[in-house]
Deep mutational scan, measured.
Amino acid sequence: DDLEQFAKQFKQRRIKLGFTQADVGLALGTLYGNVFSQTTICRFEALQLSFKNMCKLKPLLNKWLEEAD
């Protein structure tokens, strides 16, 4: 599944880049005006958010990865 794959890759890249889940949540706030909690990022990576929320977060996290690289 696409979302599952993305969540896995996101977590690996985030760790490799040296960011915590909280860092990502704050960075999203800075970039897009939407601060996300560490818990939200954690749940995303664990696929524990609703499908709708996963779909909403994915493009933001994808963009963040591009910026962070």
Rank of each mutant, 00 (worst) to 15 (best):
residue 1 D to N: 15
residue 2 D to M: 09
residue 2 D to F: 08
residue 2 D to V: 00
residue 2 D to W: 11
residue 2 D to S: 11
residue 2 D to I: 09
residue 3 L to E: 07
residue 7 A to N: 01
residue 7 A to T: 12
residue 8 K to I: 15
residue 8 K to F: 07
residue 9 Q to T: 14
residue 9 Q to V: 10
residue 9 Q to N: 14
residue 11 K to N: 00
residue 12 Q to Y: 11
residue 13 R to M: 05
residue 13 R to Y: 04
residue 13 R to D: 03
residue 13 R to C: 06
residue 14 R to Y: 02
residue 14 R to T: 00
residue 14 R to F: 02
residue 14 R to L: 02
residue 15 I to Y: 08
residue 15 I to P: 06
residue 15 I to G: 02
residue 16 K to G: 11
residue 16 K to C: 06
residue 19 F to C: 11
residue 19 F to L: 10
residue 19 F to S: 01
residue 20 T to R: 01
residue 20 T to K: 03
residue 21 Q to G: 04
residue 21 Q to L: 09
residue 21 Q to C: 09
residue 22 A to S: 09
residue 22 A to E: 11
residue 22 A to M: 05
residue 22 A to G: 09
residue 23 D to A: 12
residue 23 D to F: 00
residue 23 D to Q: 14
residue 24 V to G: 04
residue 24 V to I: 02
residue 24 V to M: 02
residue 24 V to N: 03
residue 24 V to K: 01
residue 24 V to W: 00
residue 25 G to M: 03
residue 25 G to D: 05
residue 25 G to I: 01
residue 26 L to H: 15
residue 26 L to S: 14
residue 26 L to E: 15
residue 27 A to D: 05
residue 28 L to N: 03
residue 28 L to M: 05
residue 28 L to Q: 03
residue 28 L to V: 03
residue 28 L to F: 05
residue 29 G to L: 00
residue 29 G to P: 04
residue 29 G to E: 13
residue 29 G to V: 07
residue 29 G to T: 13
residue 29 G to N: 14
residue 30 T to F: 06
residue 30 T to G: 13
residue 31 L to P: 06
residue 31 L to T: 11
residue 31 L to I: 14
residue 32 Y to C: 15
residue 32 Y to N: 01
residue 32 Y to K: 05
residue 32 Y to Q: 12
residue 33 G to S: 01
residue 33 G to M: 02
residue 34 N to T: 12
residue 34 N to W: 02
residue 34 N to I: 10
residue 35 V to N: 05
residue 35 V to H: 11
residue 35 V to C: 07
residue 35 V to I: 05
residue 35 V to R: 13
residue 36 F to Q: 10
residue 36 F to H: 10
residue 36 F to A: 12
residue 36 F to R: 15
residue 36 F to I: 15
residue 36 F to Y: 13
residue 37 S to G: 07
residue 37 S to P: 12
residue 37 S to L: 04
residue 37 S to I: 01
residue 38 Q to V: 07
residue 38 Q to A: 11
residue 38 Q to R: 12
residue 38 Q to Y: 10
residue 38 Q to E: 15
residue 38 Q to W: 07
residue 39 T to I: 11
residue 39 T to H: 14
residue 39 T to M: 06
residue 40 T to K: 10
residue 40 T to G: 01
residue 40 T to C: 05
residue 40 T to W: 07
residue 40 T to M: 10
residue 40 T to D: 07
residue 40 T to Y: 05
residue 42 C to N: 15
residue 42 C to I: 15
residue 42 C to M: 09
residue 43 R to P: 00
residue 43 R to Q: 11
residue 43 R to E: 12
residue 44 F to L: 01
residue 44 F to P: 00
residue 44 F to C: 11
residue 44 F to W: 05
residue 45 E to P: 02
residue 46 A to S: 12
residue 46 A to T: 11
residue 46 A to C: 09
residue 48 Q to I: 02
residue 48 Q to R: 07
residue 48 Q to S: 10
residue 48 Q to E: 12
residue 49 L to V: 00
residue 49 L to R: 08
residue 50 S to Q: 15
residue 50 S to T: 07
residue 50 S to E: 10
residue 51 F to L: 14
residue 51 F to A: 12
residue 53 N to R: 13
residue 53 N to T: 14
residue 53 N to D: 14
residue 53 N to A: 13
residue 53 N to W: 12
residue 53 N to F: 06
residue 54 M to K: 00
residue 54 M to H: 06
residue 54 M to Y: 06
residue 54 M to S: 06
residue 55 C to H: 10
residue 55 C to K: 13
residue 55 C to S: 12
residue 55 C to Q: 15
residue 55 C to I: 13
residue 55 C to D: 04
residue 56 K to I: 12
residue 56 K to S: 10
residue 56 K to R: 14
residue 57 L to W: 07
residue 57 L to T: 04
residue 57 L to E: 00
residue 58 K to V: 07
residue 58 K to G: 01
residue 58 K to L: 01
residue 59 P to V: 08
residue 61 L to A: 02
residue 61 L to R: 00
residue 61 L to V: 06
residue 61 L to M: 06
residue 61 L to W: 01
residue 61 L to C: 02
residue 61 L to K: 04
residue 62 N to P: 00
residue 62 N to L: 11
residue 62 N to R: 12
residue 62 N to S: 14
residue 62 N to I: 10
residue 62 N to G: 14
residue 62 N to Q: 13
residue 62 N to F: 05
residue 62 N to D: 14
residue 63 K to A: 11
residue 63 K to E: 06
residue 63 K to G: 12
residue 63 K to H: 10
residue 63 K to N: 09
residue 64 W to N: 00
residue 64 W to E: 02
residue 64 W to S: 03
residue 64 W to G: 02
residue 64 W to F: 05
residue 64 W to I: 03
residue 65 L to S: 05
residue 65 L to E: 07
residue 65 L to I: 06
residue 65 L to W: 09
residue 66 E to L: 07
residue 66 E to F: 11
residue 66 E to P: 06
residue 67 E to Q: 10
residue 67 E to G: 12
residue 68 A to W: 04
residue 68 A to E: 05
residue 68 A to R: 09
residue 69 D to T: 08
residue 69 D to S: 05
